[in-house]
Design a binder for these strands. Structure first.
Lengths: 192, 192
DNA sequence: ACCTGAACACCGTTCAAGT
DNA sequence: ACCTGAACACCGTTCAAGT
């Protein structure tokens, strides 16, 4: 890659991160290009679709989350691991408004640039759930798809301004539905 | 209202209902106008915003839901009433793709044309929840806001194509988290 | 009163022209 | 190889001109 191309690319990513943080995931690509001082066509050349841009923006964060899941498999009890990881993922979705909707959509079609990352997250959750289920600390009548659906649904909810005040409690409600053999006090104790 | 205006209005509503049913709630207003054989400006004259149009589209259905809640207060036990109403509301959101997102957004600002209907639904749910809580059949540590958030979150989830196959089960997971002193079999028995 | 085409400022996509 | 302005087909909003 040429030097100026490299510079443009990193410039775009830096600015995009800031703009998305303040405006949400549905900012116009034109706005991002303007703020990054590049032509719109240049932005589209580096990231042909909005999802391609977000894949580049989020991949390190998402990779860290799947890595975290692997670590938790040995560093924490099955139920604690699931609980901690669940909360981290919801925290992640809260850091970028509108990103959950995109992930849920990307999760559907393999052509999306975000598909691989979403699949990895999905897989991580499924493994943590399976471990907790085999120990009897997570309810047996749900699977990885359900877990992913609940997490993204929760992520969507806390994206809505009117639900923000109850965000922590909503997480508690859902997690206490997933975990079994656990006093409510335990589940509630640690808030995000 | 003049005769031609009346005719246009009902024509728009009929067509809009069909178009939204097949394309989802984010169809362009232009498309609706085209399909209804009226000028775009005419559509905008009758319904100055997309939410105004949807308020007209959904109000009878939403009114029926709040009415249903009132009936259930006397015709069913507290937990059954909550369960039945919850399921009906989720069913409703499934009948119009993308409508939950709009309702959640409308729920935030009183200026929205959908605000009143959303508030009524919210209120209905809160009353059913309160009744179940006073009888000890719904968990005490949640309120009407939580219920509304859970319902819309679930509605959003089942709007995503990838989550549709698990829709019934997701409803079961959430409702069994809300209701207490209830065997899992009972909650699961009746599926949507 | 009510309808409507047209102008406007936006959007994402595409491409020929520049360096 | 890479950048970019411009043209394109879309969108929702607004309004002057028509009946």
């Amino acid at each position: 890659m040429r030097a100026d191309a490299q510079k443009n690319r990193s410039q775009i990513l830096t600015i995009a991160r800031a703009v998305v943080a303040e405006q949400g995931a549905d900012v116009s690509m034109r706005d991002i290009a303007r703020r990054a001082d590049v032509g719109l066509a240049t932005l589209l050349r580096h990231f042909p679709t909005r999802e391609a841009l977000f894949e580049a923006l989020l991949c390190t964060h998402l990779d860290a989350l799947t890595q975290k899941a692997v670590e938790l498999e040995t560093s924490a009890s099955a139920d604690e691991a699931l609980l901690i990881w669940f909360r981290e993922l919801v925290l992640f979705t809260r850091s970028y408004r509108g990103v959950v909707a995109m992930m849920a959509a990307a999760h559907t079609n393999p052509d999306s640039a975000l598909y691989a990352s979403c699949a990895a997250v999905h897989e991580s959750g499924a493994r943590l759930l399976l471990r907790a289920q085999s120990e009897g600390t997570a309810r047996a009548d749900m699977n990885g798809d359900d877990l992913f659906a609940l997490i993204t649904a929760l992520g969507w909810a806390v994206d809505q301004p009117s639900f923000v005040p109850r965000a922590d409690h909503l997480v508690h409600l859902i997690t206490s539905a997933i975990l079994t053999n656990r006093s409510r006090y335990d589940v509630k104790k640690a808030t995000i």
